[in-house]
Amino acid sequence: MSHDHTDPPSELTLKVKALESLLVEKGLVNPETLDTIIETYESQVGPRNGAHVVAKAWVDDDFKSALLADATAAVASLGYTGRQGEHLKVVENTADTHNLVVCTLCSCYPWTVLGLPPVWYKSAPYRARAVSEPRKVLAEFGTVLPEETRIKVWDSTSEMRYLVLPLRPAGTDELSEEQLRDLVTRNSMIGVEQAKTVASRG
């Protein structure tokens, strides 16, 4: 292999580099801003924010009421605000109703509280089947619900994003809010799984 050159990357990488360098020259994009955005979604944002919201709702009834009434404002009160000005709605799982979130059009997703969407969320099969056969989709995630449980599917849009408030697992009365956060997974907030049980924690 020759060392007097570097093999050019894929056409897609070249195109991104081309667009980025043009936008930087035109003063529309700052490279440090891009790095900050990526780092934010990598570490600071992400499912941890959503877990904070859910665990607080489990232990604080006033917060839970506020969250169900106006999730955008309640989540902002914890310091998590959207970049795209979209509204957030929190849908609560109960003993007889299970909620599932999808975006059939593309992949609108509550980034501020969940970080970046997983690949399957963006896939056409999930986007179609979450609506046509949600019970089967849930079973494939290992979530088998009783026949009588109603499944509500929420279709996200660019203006409205949804976050599932999962059921608080049994036997967690002694856990602190901090400890409860560890039970709240990203998938449980999309609605494809339940929150972790104490036995499966850690």
Partner: peptide, 9 residues
């Protein structure tokens, strides 16, 4: 990178 460019724009 493409993701971040869209957010920045």
């Amino acid at each position: 990178q493409a993701f971040a460019i869209v957010l920045a724009l």
